[in-house]
Design a binder for these strands. Structure first.
Length: 720
DNA sequence: AGCACGCCGACT
DNA sequence: GTCGGCGTGCTC
């Protein structure tokens, strides 16, 4: 038999082999490949267009009796490899845990079970005499026990003694479908909008359909998730909940675990290979009812997946930013269609893509208008920075407001999306600034560690005493970062604690959690942080949120920047006033009349999104246009340009696809390499994808392609 | 990606 | 005279 095998190499082709033994698609095989041996996945049996049969090598070993990749997953992966034009071998890497890629046995053994033999059952307590430990073990073994249960109280050699005596025997304990159970904790009462949403999803169970659940923070989205899940886990089905990278908080997990008496698993990037493998197996065997995980959980092999939930569906961390650049939300929709189950996308600030899908009738729209607990929405105040006396990056009014809220015994949250002390050091004599040698960027001054750090390539060096241009010793920090603001806030408000939360202050393991716990105790204080504060965390005692610098996001050349700013504003508004009082949001800007700001503030996100969508339509941007991007990196600028020019030349044949470029990436040099790009727009998705197929075949033929590092990004999230 | 082959410069 | 640099080709 000839089999077609997908191999872990970055080539967009399959390889054919001979195989005498029984195999099914989705099984792993060990095959000779050049001078090497590789583990591949059987992709097709007896392909009609097989490679010259006389040239075929034979499979060395079949590693699985049953497929590690079941048909639905293979269908998903195959679709993904086509859609993102990514080598299948790399795509498979996302779907298999490392241990399986390395050839580990995939049999789902949970552990070992000990039970008494006939001889063991006929023993009596008296026979143990003074052997108290053995008596206790015997008593516990009246019921079959897992090895791990027994090892809590007994030593391994005691277990072995029972086996040697023929009193007990060991059997492998296999994973299997979980025991369904009723809810542990009673569900909360629903308001009419929530009830409508729950009913809609529940009625859709068993068939493919997409729902967009739009509800502001505090409107009770999680309760809708939980009640939508309820009938699924009562019927023995499985649910996948995808969350953004930072959203995987212990509280979220606890809420799911407390509600249902069924096994809940988690999946995220901090797990060990063995932990991942175990979750993978428990999914495959149906042992886990619910999995909460970040984007790659999308590829887990569920036995009976009946519902998908994507929380914070607008979040950009669902798009992988290197290698296989897939969007987990988009692929999740594909997966739901393959599995014939509903998918629920939830957000307070839906992506424009999803809203367009609602408008075009592809998604059903479920709205939760009210804050569940009936709190008031926070009020937003714009602080016009023009001609203001600024102190430490804050206008007088801003400082007053902070003071007022501290006096009221509330906490104040400040956002500044720039870590470090200052974005650069500047020479007071000649204007020279500290630059990274390898990137087109300045190096950030970190005062505490006394270092200059490039935030783009990670290079660090000591702080110079002299200007690199004129030799002057007059070097001063320019601009403001969180480290500096922390110091300044402490000076301005010496009576209050200032907590800074950014990548630097939370580097030590557990220090983030420690800071969050301390904040939750509610003492009036200033909390200051970067983007990492914006998502997921709940601070009930925060009465005021200040956004120090709105302007840098207002005027960005990234077409998604307005959308992201509107999302940030809405999300942080949700952070304020979750307790009894309504919160306040303060925005510092030089452009208080800016249409986007006005629209979001006065009419809310939904209104903003409607106008933003119209604008995207008029300017021929996604989601009304399909976009793909070729990026190329090389040490020599000329190689970048030449390679892209060849791509551009190829596109002369494709009238339906519009080109923008070749042009430099927003950050032209990074880690010593030049970076250029070409943007491809098409009205017709099919045309775009056909053109990509054809240009990729060309690219693989060019010898220039090996002197540069290039990548294709389909549906890019940002143009960097 | 890896691995081999092959052709040119600087070393024990 | 070799060792090893990386350009090029190939992997069913």
């Amino acid at each position: 038999m000839v089999i077609r095998v997908a191999l872990p190499i970055p080539l967009r082709v399959h390889f054919d082999y001979l195989c005498d033994s029984e195999v099914q698609p989705g099984c792993r095989v060990l095959v000779p490949f050049g001078k090497r041996e590789l583990i591949g996945i059987v992709w097709q049996l007896n392909p009609s267009d097989s490679y010259d049969a006389t040239q075929l090598k034979a499979v060395t070993q079949v590693l699985d009796q049953t497929p590690v990749l079941a048909a639905p997953i293979r269908q998903l992966l195959s679709f993904a490899a086509d859609y993102y034009h990514h080598p299948l071998g790399d795509v498979l890497t996302s779907a298999l845990p490392a241990l399986l890629r390395d050839g580990k046995n995939a049999d789902p053994v949970k552990g070992h079970s000990y039970q008494l033999t006939e001889a063991g059952q006929h023993l009596t307590a008296e026979q143990f005499k003074a052997a108290k430990k053995r008596l206790a073990l015997w008593q516990q073994l009246q019921q079959p026990q897992t090895e791990s249960q027994l090892l809590e109280h007994f030593q391994r050699k005691e277990l072995q003694y029972f086996i040697d005596q023929g009193w007990a025997l060991v059997t492998p304990l296999l994973y299997g479908p979980y025991q369904t159970a009723a809810e542990q904790q009673k569900s909360l009462p629903l308001n009419p909008a929530q009830a409508l949403a729950v009913t809609a999803v529940q009625q859709a169970l068993g068939s493919f359909s997409c729902f967009l659940l739009e509800g502001v923070t505090g409107s009770g989205k999680t309760e809708v998730y939980l009640q939508a899940i309820s009938p699924v886990v009562k019927a023995g089905g499985q649910v996948l909940v995808l969350v953004p990278e930072i959203g995987l908080t212990p509280q979220t997990l606890a809420r799911f675990e407390q509600r249902f008496a069924v096994p809940v698993g988690v999946w995220h990037s901090n797990m060990t290979d063995l932990e991942r493998f175990t979750v993978w197996q428990r999914c495959q065997t149906g042992d886990l009812a619910i999995v909460i995980g970040t984007r790659s959980a999308l590829f887990l092999p569920f036995l009976k997946l009946d519902l998908l939930i994507i929380d914070e569906e607008h979040d950009s961390s669902f798009k992988q930013q290197d290698g296989f650049r897939y969007h987990a939300r988009d692929l999740a929709i594909k997966r739901a269609s393959i599995q014939c189950c509903p998918i629920l996308l939830g957000s307070a600030t839906p992506s424009l893509e999803s809203l367009a899908n609602v408008q075009q009738g592809r998604f059903a729209h479920l709205e939760l208008p009210d804050r569940a607990a009936g709190q008031l929405m926070p009020s937003v105040e714009l602080v016009d920075l023009k001609q203001q006396q600024m102190l430490h990056g804050m206008a007088g009014l801003t400082r007053q407001r902070i003071e007022q809220h501290l006096k009221l015994g509330q906490q104040v949250l400040l956002f500044l999306n720039r870590r470090g002390f200052a974005p650069a050091l500047i020479c007071h004599e000649c204007g020279w600034m500290t630059e990274c040698h390898r990137c087109s960027a300045f190096t950030t001054f970190h005062k505490q560690s006394r270092q200059l750090v490039c935030h783009h390539c990670g290079a660090t060096k000591g702080v110079p005493h002299q200007c690199g241009g004129c030799g002057s010793t007059q070097l001063a920090p320019v601009g403001q970062g969180t480290e500096q603001l922390e110091e300044q806030l402490q000076q301005l408000f010496p009576a209050h604690r200032v907590t800074r939360l950014d990548r630097d202050s939370t580097r030590r393991k557990g220090s983030l959690q420690q800071a969050l716990d301390q904040i939750l105790q509610g003492e009036p204080q200033l909390i200051l942080g970067t983007q990492m504060l914006a998502k997921g965390h709940h601070f009930p005692n925060v009465g005021l949120v200040v956004i120090i610098d709105v302007d840098s996001a207002l005027y960005s050349n990234d077409f998604r920047a307005p959308e992201q700013l509107a999302q940030l504003l809405t999300q942080v508004s949700g952070r304020a006033g979750r307790g009894s009082q309504p919160g306040k949001v303060l925005l510092q800007t030089h452009y208080p009349g800016h249409a986007l700001l006005q629209d979001v503030i006065q009419n809310g996100y939904a209104s903003f999104a409607r106008s933003a969508l119209k604008e995207r339509q008029q300017t021929f941007l996604p989601p009304f246009m399909f976009l793909a991007l070729f990026r190329v990196e090389a040490h020599q600028l000329e190689l970048c340009k030449e390679w892209l020019q060849q791509v551009a030349d190829h596109y002369k044949n494709w009238q339906q696809v519009q080109l923008l470029g070749p042009l430099a990436c927003p950050m032209e040099r990074k880690a010593g390499k030049y970076r250029w790009q070409i943007q491809l727009f098409a009205k017709d998705r099919k045309q775009l994808h056909q053109s990509l197929d054809s240009v990729l075949t060309e690219i693989s033929r060019w010898s220039l392609s090996r002197k540069v590092k290039w990548q294709l990004d389909v549906d890019p999230q940002d143009l960097n």
